[in-house]
Amino acid sequence: METANPLHDIAVFLKRLQWTALALGALWLLWVLAPILTPFAFAALLGWLGDPLVDRLQRAGRSRNVAVTLVFSAMTLALILVLVLLVPAIERQIAILIESFPSYREWFMQTALPWVEARTGLEITSWLDFQRLSELIRSNWERAGGFATTLLGYLSRSGFALIALVANIALLPVLAFFFLRDWDVFVERVAALVPRKYLPTVSRLARESDAMLGGFLRGQFLVMLILGVMYGVGLWLVGLDLGILIGIIAGLFTFIPYLGPASGIILGVIAALVQYGDWKHVAGVLAVFGIGQVIESYWLTPKLVGDRIGLHPVAVIFAVLAGGQLFGFLGMLLALPVAAVANVLLRFAQERYTHSKLYAGDRPDIVVAHAHPQSPAAYPREPEAE
């Protein structure tokens, strides 16, 4: 029987208390420095995303500086194209939605609500004031420009806030370039700090985390982008005025199973009924999303995502919302990396637990195999005659 060692127990307790205090201090420092760390976190994320392309160009024979310049230029060009093409299109779509809101209100009041009331017996029209809701949305949209003017005026009056905003915007491309160029150096320096005893385990967990998070960001985001473009163009060809906006919404919600196509179908059918009022355009909307789902299921997801995704959509939503609540925009940026690492650590802990004595119990030293009923060993042998 082992004897208790009070000094050893106290030392273990103090060590755990020290690590707990260190973790709480790091979280407090992260919360305090969140506004300053936001451009660094975003630049590090861009550097991590672009590093595989840089490594591939290096293996093709280009130098590190040339590869970094090419990848950084491509990322900058993609961002400019998104800002130039997508933002004005979304703004026009929202303006069309606000202008056509009376038509949607009339359709809901004259068609949708009477149909629902006739089949459910509920009196919805009596406690819904769509006229007031329409005026509220329109007035808020018209005041959006005034809000932007007020915000810019506040920033201009607050010199420090304006300087911080401009500094963050100006620092972002510079930090992203340096993270992209020196990403391998940062990884080597972090690996050099890991105790040699735990280096194989830490390296394995880091590779699994990188594969999981990389599979989600690179694969799923490509699927969202392709489907958003397909849905938007398809609904525009059908003739919907709000087709691009509905396609973008459906593409953004694609990472949640069933929610992306379901939201797109509902919004597309409503837009077709309000704008045209016939079933021909509704059939066109259903055909667009049907073709998109076939392409996603049989080509996009197996080709771009495969089985690399280990993050459940519910975990992704919770991680992003929790990160934003705790640390603001910085928390939303760090939510997916933290969730991926936590998922890998939980799998590792489960693996260790299933191989532990607590889970498996005391295994017998000798395992007696049961003989098959039809085998001769299953029946007692008669004693041989002497």
Rank of each mutant, 00 (worst) to 15 (best):
A118K: 14
L311S: 07
A41V: 00
G277S: 12
T38M: 12
L304W: 02
A112C: 13
L7M: 10
M109P: 01
P35N: 03
W31Q: 15
I244L: 11
Y258E: 11
Y276N: 01
R196D: 02
Q275H: 08
A43T: 01
K280I: 03
A144T: 07
A176T: 11
D365V: 06
F186T: 09
F329P: 00
L334P: 09
T201L: 14
V116S: 05
G25H: 06
T354D: 15
A262F: 03
L136T: 13
V288G: 03
T125Q: 06
S297F: 01
P313V: 00
M224H: 05
A95I: 08
L240E: 03
L330N: 04
F108G: 04
V285P: 00
L180A: 11
V12P: 00
D210E: 13
E351K: 15
G146M: 05
A211M: 10
M212P: 00
S356F: 06
P261I: 02
Q275C: 04
L128Q: 05
D365I: 08
P195A: 07
A78G: 13
E382S: 12
L311V: 10
I265W: 03
F255G: 05
E188N: 08
E188Y: 00
A349F: 09
P200T: 09
S209V: 09
V288L: 10
I256H: 00
L7V: 05
Y353D: 08
L326F: 06
A144Q: 10
F177T: 00
F186E: 05
W31T: 07
I317N: 10
I36K: 10
I124R: 05
L240K: 00
A206M: 12
Q18E: 14
E117I: 04
I98W: 00
L259A: 13
Q275L: 01
A161F: 03
L273N: 12
W107G: 02
I36L: 15
P102G: 03
A144S: 10
I295T: 05
R92H: 09
G290A: 11
A192Y: 07
V274W: 01
T254D: 06
V185P: 00
E2W: 01
L97D: 00
V341I: 15
L81W: 09
E99Y: 00
G264Y: 01
S126D: 14
G239Q: 05
R204I: 02
V174Y: 13
L97A: 13
